[in-house]
Structure formats: C-alpha cells, structure tokens
C-alpha cells in the first residue's frame, strides 16, 4: 500500500527535487544518521555541478543500501556486498557517467570486502560512501566489522571479541586516492568532502560515523539519538592529512576524523587505454610511460 501524499499544502523541501518524495518518509529509524548523510550527499551532488542524467547511485543491502531507492536519479540496489562490482561494470560500460556507491560498513567491508580492496587497487573511478553505524542495523543489530571491541550486539551479547577494521587505513593501503572520515554531525565538512570525492578522479572513499540509536545505542547504554550523535562528535578530533594508520576510532579516547588522503594515481581506464594502445613499450618501460603521462596530466590540470 502506498501512503497517501503528505501535506501537499506546504512548500517543497529544498531537497525534494532529488528525492523520490512518493517514498518519503523513508524507513530509517528516528535519530538514524543515514538520513543526515543522505541529505549531505544530495547537497554534494548538486554542488558538484554534474549533469544529473550522468549520475548513478549504486548501493548494496542494509539500512544504508536503501539510499539508492530514495534518490531520484538512476539508482541500483544490488545484492548484499556487490555494489562495488556492479558499479565497476557500470562505470566501465559508461566511462562518461559518474558512479557513486553508497552503502554500510557491513555491506562494503564484510561481505563486500574483497571487492572494496580490488576496486581501490585498480583505482576505478568510483566514489564510495560508507555509513559506519558500528553494527548491522537492518537485521536488528548484529556484529559488524566495525563493531568496537567489547561492544554489545545481538550476536555478541556479552561484548564483541572481534577487533574492528580501520576502514580508512585499509582504503589508503589498497590505493584509494581520496580518503576522509567525518561524523554525521560534521555536516559542512562532510559535504565538502563528498563534493571533493565526487569530483576526484579515481577511487575515493568517505567514511561517516553515524548514530544507530535503535540497534547499537540501545544495547550500549546510549539510547537517545541526540546523545549518541553528540558523543561521536564530542570525542572526535580533526586531524587532516594524518597517516590513516594513526587515525584510530577509540571510544575510550578519540575518534580521529579528517581528510587523510588526497593524491593522484592513474585510473584503471587510463591504464587500460595505455596498455592496449600497443605501441607502448614492454612492462618495465610501461611504468615509466605511465608516470610521464601522469605528469603531463597534472601539468595540464594546473
């Protein structure tokens, strides 16, 4: 059953032009941070000045995976963990398009971890947005690869024995050209990062620490959405350009946020063109050729 239209009398919300308003209110719980990130993403897409016909949003399964269903752009909701490989095919088939992958930490880095690693390694021109809510929200709050050591989830009722990943360090180690992390309350900086990530050529990654009061906060003594949001923000320290290996998420200490990586690497498609031109030298000389082209491009960009 489709709900009847809501409050037609009021003026449109400024984001309504990119929302599937006939599907709003969305399914996210009261106080969920995904909505804030989604709002920020819509602002970023508008600010980045792209032709909106050329933007595609691809997501996987889970709470954040529902983002694709609410944005009024070409969007695809894939199977669990497979947003990145789907986006890979889409981007390579239509290099002129801008592909944004938006999904959760469990989808992108547990079941989809292998794809994440390899897309970053190839430096595919994708923007990957990871909403990290420290658990699997959609299924009721189970252990995620981000769940802090000792935190309670339904599958770690006495506390998690697992060590979580540092997603930003992983992305940087695999070759991502843009890596940033913010909390859902760093809205202006997050939006700036999203614009930069969308405009960046290559594999860019933005992680957002977002409150999940319903599933995560409730089991870990912070039930109120505002308290959870404030806690993430209050404990965060901004350390731009910090080695992401040192950008730890430590709830007893600091949650390090900032823009950690912004560098240039040739993308998969650049390299594909280079090696398949056939006049290129053998593989030892090819590296030299690539650096030369990279330099020429950097020069042209300035």
């Amino acid at each position: 059953m489709n709900p009847e239209p809501i409050q037609a009398a009021l003026p449109c919300h400024p984001q309504d032009d990119l929302l599937r308003t006939d599907r709003i209110p969305h399914i996210w719980c009261s106080g969920c941070g995904i909505g804030i990130v989604f709002n920020s993403l819509i602002t970023a897409i508008k600010k980045s000045g792209l032709n909106q016909d050329e933007v595609a949003v691809v997501s996987g399964i889970g709470c954040t995976g529902r983002m694709a269903g609410y944005i009024a752009l070409d969007s695809f909701h894939t199977t669990h963990g497979r947003a990145i490989p789907f986006a890979t095919g889409l981007k390579l088939a239509r290099p002129q398009g801008q592909v944004i992958v938006a999904s959760g930490d469990g989808d992108l880095l547990a079941i989809g971890g292998n794809h994440f690693i390899h897309a970053a390694r190839r430096n595919l021109d994708l923007t990957v947005i990871c909403v990290n809510n420290f658990n699997y929200g959609m299924t009721g709050g189970q252990l995620a690869p981000s769940t802090p050591f000792g935190a309670k989830t339904t599958t770690t009722p006495l506390g998690s024995p697992d060590e979580p990943f540092n997603f930003c360090a992983l992305a940087a180690a695999c070759g991502a050209v843009y890596v940033a992390r913010w909390t859902a309350l760093h809205i202006r900086r997050l939006t700036t990062s999203l614009v930069e990530a969308i405009q960046k050529k290559g594999f860019s990654f933005v992680e957002i620490l977002a409150p999940c009061p319903t599933a995560f906060g409730r089991r870990n003594q912070i039930r109120k959405p505002v308290e959870l949001l404030r806690m993430y923000h209050d404990r965060s320290v901004v350390r731009n350009d910090l080695d992401p290996n040192l950008a730890v998420i430590d709830f007893a200490g600091n949650l390090v946020v900032g823009k950690f990586v912004d560098r240039t690497r040739t993308t998969f498609l650049d390299n594909y063109g280079l090696v398949n031109r056939r006049e290129a030298p053998d593989w030892l000389g090819l590296e030299h050729e690539r650096l030369r082209e990279e330099k020429a491009r950097a020069g042209a960009g300035q």
């Binding site: 199977t79 490989p85 890979t88 889409l90 390579l92 088939a93 390899h118």
Partner: peptide
C-alpha cells in the same frame, strides 16, 4: 576486466548491461 572472483564478474556484467 578480470575480476577478483565470479561473484564480482556476474555483478559487473549486470552493471555493464545497465550501462547499455
């Protein structure tokens, strides 16, 4: 493109198909 596994390969061809 040689993907990292067959799961990714199958997902990628779906993506390419939606790319026309």
């Amino acid at each position: 493109i040689q993907m990292e596994d067959e799961i990714a390969s199958m997902a990628a061809i779906l993506g390419a198909s939606w790319g026309g």
